Each structure stands twice: as structure tokens, then as C-alpha cells.
Computed example of a mutant assay.
Amino acid sequence: MDRLVLVALSEAVGRAREFAAEALRSWGVVDALDDVVLVASELVTNAVRATGQKAGHRVAVQLRFAGRSLYVEVWDSAPGVPRANHADADAEEGRGLCLVAALATRWGTCRPRAGGKVVWAELPLPGVPEPLSADVPPLGPEFGAELLADVALMERTLEALRGL
């Protein structure tokens, strides 16, 4: 499992893409690289937009194996729930969650106890090397959402303490 906490600015999207690509390369899971990078990019873009691109706000992204699947999980503090839109052919945005739905086995939203929301997508990884998935229990998105929200809460607490 790898995770990254980012400032909710547009630059976070590029960093999330780099993070996802680096993680997959380090795990030797390059067959799914393009799909995972695209899903991470779309989910982080939505999280940054939902938080209003404010320097004091954070988003977090986590990549996690569960059996033969990889979860891309993105946390933000915004209250709204994302919805897949059916954009017109000439629209310049609004296709992100449709792309996620097309690439993922399933996707959804969780509300962790620590606050905010986690939007997750499960991507199949049939070619995952056995050592990466052998002893990983197939824990669902609620498990990952709680972990990611706890990390984001700790990050916010550290930032507040540093400001004192």
C-alpha cells in the first residue's frame, strides 16, 4: 500500500499521476499502469475541484492491493458526493467518472469516521505477481477509506501543530 497527501491545488493532479506510475513500476505491475494513472488523475482532479483549490486544504491518494484487484482511493474534505455526468460530445469536462466507471470493475464513495469522503475505484489486475497479492486479504473499500481518512486527519493535525 502506498499513499500520498497533497495540497488541494491543480498541481496535485500531476503529482498524483507521477505517484501512481512510480508505485506501479516499483511493484512490477506495468500492464495496468495507464488505466491506474488515468483513474488516479480523474479522482484527484475531482477532489481538488470539490475542495475549491485552497492552499490550506488537502487531498490524499492511496493505492492498495486486495486480492487480484487494485484500489485507487482518494480522500477529500468536501461534503458533496460525485456523480457521473453524461457530457455532450463537445464538452471540455464532465467525463471523468464515466472514464473511471469504464476502466474500473466498480467504484463508489465512502464516508469515513474521521470525516470527509473517499472516492474509490477497483481495477482488476489479473497479471499481479503472486508475492504482491498472496497474503493480502480482500478487504473492501470501507477498510481503505478508514485508513486513508485517518492518515489525512493526522496530516491536518500535524500542520495545525506546526503552525502553533
Score class of each variant (00 low, 15 high):
Asp2Met: 00
Arg3Tyr: 14
Arg3Thr: 09
Leu6Arg: 06
Val7Thr: 15
Val7Arg: 12
Ala8Met: 05
Ser10Trp: 10
Ala12Leu: 05
Val13Met: 00
Gly14Ile: 02
Gly14Pro: 04
Arg15Ser: 06
Arg15Asn: 04
Arg15Thr: 03
Arg17Val: 06
Arg17Tyr: 03
Glu18Gln: 04
Phe19Lys: 02
Glu22Pro: 01
Glu22Asn: 06
Ala23Glu: 00
Leu24Trp: 02
Leu24Asp: 01
Arg25Ser: 03
Arg25Trp: 00
Gly28Asn: 04
Gly28Pro: 06
Gly28Gln: 04
Gly28Leu: 10
Val30Asp: 13
Asp31Ala: 15
Asp34Lys: 11
Asp34Asn: 11
Asp35Arg: 09
Ala40Ile: 03
Ser41Leu: 01
Ser41Pro: 01
Val44Asp: 04
Ala47Cys: 10
Val48Ile: 12
Val48Arg: 07
Thr51Asp: 13
Ala55Lys: 06
Gly56Asn: 12
Gly56His: 13
Gly56Thr: 11
His57Tyr: 13
His57Thr: 07
Gln62Thr: 07
Leu63Gly: 02
Arg64Pro: 01
Ala66Val: 09
Arg68Asp: 11
Tyr71Gly: 02
Val74Gly: 12
Trp75Ala: 06
Asp76Arg: 04
Asp76Thr: 08
Pro79Asp: 14
Pro79Trp: 10
Arg83Leu: 14
Asn85Met: 14
Asn85Trp: 13
Asp88Gly: 14
Ala89Lys: 10
Ala91Gln: 08
Glu92Ser: 08
Gly94Pro: 09
Arg95Pro: 01
Gly96Pro: 09
Leu97Gly: 00
Leu97Trp: 13
Leu97Val: 00
Leu97His: 12
Leu99Trp: 05
Leu99Ile: 09
Ala101Phe: 04
Leu103Glu: 04
Ala104Asn: 03
Ala104Thr: 10
Trp107His: 13
Trp107Lys: 03
Cys110Glu: 15
Arg111Ser: 11
Arg111Phe: 09
Arg111Pro: 01
Ala114Tyr: 12
Ala114Met: 09
Gly115Pro: 11
Ala121Asp: 02
Glu122Arg: 11
Leu123Trp: 02
Pro126Cys: 04
Gly127Tyr: 10
Glu130Arg: 13
Ala134Gly: 00
Asp135Arg: 13
Pro138Lys: 03
Leu139Gly: 00
Ala145Val: 04
Ala145His: 04
Glu146Val: 11
Leu148Ser: 09
Ala149Ile: 07
Val151Trp: 05
Val151Cys: 06
Leu153Ile: 04
Leu153Lys: 15
Glu155Gly: 08
Thr157Gln: 15
Thr157Arg: 15
Glu159Cys: 10
Gly163His: 14
Gly163Glu: 15
